[in-house]
């Protein structure tokens, strides 16, 4: 069985989501499985009506425009495109936290790229098997 990386994503800001997506792509390239658990703002960022409009940056806000410009110059795909690619190339599962899904009043169908809605207990069990576990 290949090694597994688990990312718990609480943040919904695109700088952190981009960092998470790059790690997910890297892990898939290195032949690892990836599982992602979205919490509050993470779930919000995966909402179909939010994903493509989200320009929120959590840190160094005044630099945000410059970063966005450099991302374009470097031809770096958007974070959700990186995740889509990673899903095509390897085993990547994305779960939304059931509590967050309740807070936003969303079902799986309202979210993009999300495979299932699960609870904290199940996620803990998945993380127990993770070789790399990160909270973002």
């Amino acid at each position: 069985m290949p090694d597994k990386m688990c990312l718990t994503i609480m943040s919904g800001s695109i700088d952190r989501l981009t960092g998470a997506a790059i790690l997910a792509s890297g892990a898939v390239s290195m032949d690892m499985e990836v599982e992602i658990f979205l919490q509050l703002w993470g779930v919000y960022a995966f909402k179909k009506d939010v994903m493509h409009q989200n320009m929120n940056l959590s840190e160094f806000g005044e630099l945000g425009e410059k970063v966005a410009q450099r991302i374009q110059e470097l031809k770096l795909p958007m974070w959700f495109e990186l995740l889509k690619q990673a899903k095509e190339l390897g085993k990547v599962k994305i779960y939304a936290c059931s509590l967050a899904a309740n807070i936003w009043n969303v079902k799986k169908e309202d979210l993009e790229l999300v495979d299932d809605i699960i609870g904290a207990g199940e996620w803990i069990e998945k993380m127990r098997e993770g070789k790399i576990n990160l909270f973002i």
Partner: peptide, 10 residues
Amino acid sequence: SCPGPLLAAK
């Protein structure tokens, strides 16, 4: 940019 070349190799 990273991880593009790695993905390309894969």
